[in-house]
Amino acid sequence: VTLFVALYDYEARTEDDLSAHKGEKFQILNSSEGDWWEARSLTTGETGYIPSNYVAPV
């Protein structure tokens, strides 16, 4: 399991995006899409895309 933590708040801009709150942890499901990674929030269980530069490894 690849875990990352949000460094900043991010507000989803499309229905495919996933909002993130600073300190929230995510499981990365797919990081092969360049700057946008598919992730699952460990807080809400929701999945979507987050900007890779907004997260760091735990």
Rank of each mutant, 00 (worst) to 15 (best):
F26M: 04
E46D: 08
K25N: 06
P51Q: 06
L7P: 01
E33T: 12
D9I: 05
H21C: 12
H21T: 13
T43L: 12
V5R: 03
A56M: 10
V58P: 03
E38S: 07
W36R: 15
E11R: 09
F26A: 00
S31P: 10
R40W: 06
D17M: 13
P57A: 09
D9R: 05
T14I: 05
Y49L: 13
K22N: 04
E15Y: 09
K25V: 15
L18H: 02
G45K: 04
P57N: 05
K22E: 07
R40P: 00
D9C: 10
T2S: 11
K22W: 05
S19Q: 07
W37V: 09
Y10L: 06
V58S: 07
K22V: 12
Y54D: 00
W36H: 08
T14D: 12
E33A: 13
Y49I: 08
G23Q: 02
F4S: 02
N53E: 10
T2P: 11
Y10S: 01
S41N: 10
Y8W: 13
Y49Q: 06
E46G: 07
S32C: 14
A39W: 05
G48D: 01
T2M: 13
I28F: 03
E24M: 04
E24P: 01
T44M: 02
G45I: 04
E15A: 13
D35Y: 14
D35M: 11
T43K: 10
Y54F: 12
P57G: 04
T43H: 10
P51E: 02
I28V: 08
S41T: 01
V5N: 00
T43N: 08
D35W: 10
L29Q: 04
S52E: 02
D9L: 06
F4Y: 14
R13F: 07
G23W: 05
E24R: 02
R13T: 11
H21N: 08
P51A: 05
E38M: 15
K22Y: 06
S19Y: 06
W37N: 01
W36N: 06
V55R: 00
F26Q: 00
W37Q: 03
E24V: 03
V55S: 00
L3N: 04
V55P: 00
P57T: 05
V5W: 07
A12L: 02
T44E: 03
Y8N: 05
T2E: 10
A20C: 14
T14K: 13
A39Q: 00
A20V: 15
Y8V: 07
L18R: 01
R40S: 03
A56H: 08
S32F: 10
L18T: 02
K25M: 15
E46C: 14
Y54L: 15
L29V: 07
P57W: 06
R13I: 10
V1G: 13
N53C: 15
S19L: 03
E46F: 11
G23F: 04
D17W: 09
G48H: 02
V58D: 08
I50L: 12
Q27H: 11
D17F: 14
I50G: 01
P51N: 09
K22T: 08
D16K: 15
L42E: 07
D17H: 15
E11C: 14
E15F: 10
L7K: 05
A6E: 01
N53L: 10
L3S: 07
Y8G: 05
G34S: 13
L29I: 11
S31R: 13
E38K: 13
S52R: 13
F26R: 00
F4A: 08
D17L: 08
A39F: 14
G23Y: 05
V1T: 12
E38D: 04
Y49M: 13
